[in-house]
Structure formats: C-alpha cells, structure tokens
Amino acid sequence: MNLKNKIVIITGAGSGIGAATAKLFGTHGAVVVASDINLNNAQKIAGDITEAGGIASAIKTDVTQYQEVEALIANTIEKHDRLDVIVNNAGIGGKEQLKTAEHTHDDWHNVIAVNQTGVFYCMKVALQHMMRQGHGNIVNVASLAGLKASGHNLSYSASKFAVVGMTKSAALEYARKNIRINAVCPGFTHSALLDQLLAVSPDMGEKLKRFIPMGRFGEADEIAEAICWLASENSKFITGQTITLDGGTSL
C-alpha cells in the first residue's frame, strides 16, 4: 500500500482497532498523529511506532468537544503543513444492554455524542482544510450494527447507522473535490467493546460465534488492513462505500 509520508490522524488510537491502525500506518511509512481521550494510551502507541522506526506523535482529544477537534487538526497542520487522512475511529458502547423502552438517557446521550457527533465534528473540520489544500481522504469506523438490526443496543446502532449515512452523503458532496470518504463496518472484533459484551454471561462468546460463518471473532489488525487500504492510493476510485468485515455474519 502506498502510504509513505502521508499525514494521518487517528482518533481513538489508544487501544483496539485505533491502535492497530496507527501501528499499521506507521509500518507503511505514514506520519501518524495518535489521538485519544486517554493521553497515556495515545503516547504509548506513538512510542511503539517510533521505536519501530516510524514517525508518530500523540495528542489528547475529546471528540465530543468541537474546540478540541479544531485544535487537533490545526496543530497537525501547523506541524506538518497538511492533513492527508483522518480515521474517525473513536467510539464507545452503552453501559447497559437494554431494550428500547428501558434504554437509559445517559447511554443515549453519551454514545451519540462520541460515535455520531464526534464523527461529524472531525469530518466538518477536516473537510474545511482538505478543501483548501485540494485533496484528502476520510475513513470512518462504523459497524455491522450500522447495517443491520442490533437488539438491546439502540444508541450504538443509531450512531453507527448515522456514520454510514454521513459517509455516503459527504462522499457525494466532495467527490469532485479530490476528497474520498469511505467507512468500514466491523462485525464482532476483539476489542474493549466486545469484552464488555462477553461479560454479560460466561457462554456469551460461544453464542455469538454461532452467528459467524467463519466461527471466530475478527482481529483488530484485520480491520486496520482495510482502513489503510481505503486510505491509500490503491483504492483511488472508491468513495462512499462501506466495507463489511464480519466473517460472513451479515450473510
């Protein structure tokens, strides 16, 4: 993949898919800005990339705060003169697994703020800069829960359906401006969110695997490969698409 010297921001880079993606970009020679609400985690990932011979830095960002998103992107451009790619990966799940009538207000507002509004803020600010520089690439991390029904999970599902819709709408708007916007939709993938789901009951893991034709959960590295490919010149005629990585679950 041709990613050498691309300036890349990854939100939620401190763990899971974000961390795997940041490291893979670093391996391919990109200049990585690892952003996370947990600065220690982001610094660790940036350190790992640097130790492996790459170039990386860390910035603390709460994507629910518009001013912090502005600062993240402005600082990146001030330091590197441009922004080639932003991967909007920061996301959370609800604390409770409840049906819609019992869904808590806190879960609704918190999940929507990070997963939906945070992606909007990052896209809005990044697009302003990408328009001025004449090019850009955005990869949003949605979910299988943004493509099909997901019970006991209303706010998460709503936020990920929104990410898919925002991806397609923005891709249509900016296709003639040399800016590509795509999304990945992971199924059940080893991450903190999956760990939270597996904690519901001792046999939850085996129950979930019955719905996956490949019979296993995804790995963060596998999602990272798709993200980096979408961000590279190897996919330069692709925009407005969702790549589903779910081991066949959606079948």
Rank of each mutant, 00 (worst) to 15 (best):
D84N: 09
S143C: 11
K95P: 02
G146P: 06
A170I: 04
T242L: 06
L144W: 03
A74E: 15
Q241A: 14
L72T: 10
I238P: 05
I59Y: 13
Q116N: 03
L144A: 14
T189C: 13
G151Y: 10
E70C: 11
G187R: 06
S35Y: 04
E51H: 08
A145P: 05
W229A: 04
S57I: 10
A34Y: 09
R216Y: 00
L147V: 05
L194C: 14
L3S: 04
E173P: 03
N5F: 07
T21G: 00
A56Q: 01
G14M: 10
A30R: 08
H105N: 07
M123Q: 14
A71K: 15
K124F: 06
Q65P: 00
A183Q: 08
L230M: 04
L24R: 11
S232F: 05
A171Y: 10
N40S: 15
H80M: 05
N153L: 07
K209H: 01
T104L: 05
V125E: 07
A149T: 03
V164T: 04
S159W: 08
K177I: 02
Q67S: 13
G136R: 06
R210I: 10
S150G: 06
T117W: 00
Q67C: 02
T64E: 04
T64N: 03
S150K: 09
E70H: 09
I92Y: 01
N234M: 08
L127Y: 07
I212W: 00
V141G: 11
Q128A: 13
L230P: 00
G240P: 02
R210W: 00
T167V: 01
I77D: 07
G29Q: 07
L194D: 12
T117P: 01
H28K: 15
A113Y: 05
G134C: 04
T27S: 12
F25E: 08
I9R: 11
A226Y: 01
A162N: 04
T11Q: 07
N2F: 09
L198H: 12
G240K: 05
A231D: 05
I49N: 01
L127R: 08
A19N: 04
A20H: 07
D81P: 00
G53K: 00
S169A: 15
H129S: 07
I86F: 12
I9H: 12
E78G: 07
L154I: 14
N110P: 00
D107I: 01
V141S: 14
C228I: 09
H80F: 15
I238E: 08
I227T: 05
T167H: 02
N182F: 00
R176C: 09
H103F: 13
N40Y: 06
N38Y: 14
A74M: 12
D195C: 07
I181D: 08
V119H: 12
F161V: 03
L172E: 10
T11A: 01
L147Q: 11
V184M: 04
N137W: 09
K148F: 06
Y66H: 12
P186M: 14
S157H: 10
E78H: 13
A34N: 11
K124T: 13
C185I: 05
Q97C: 11
A20Q: 05
A199L: 09
I238A: 12
M1H: 14
I7R: 00
A13F: 06
A46D: 10
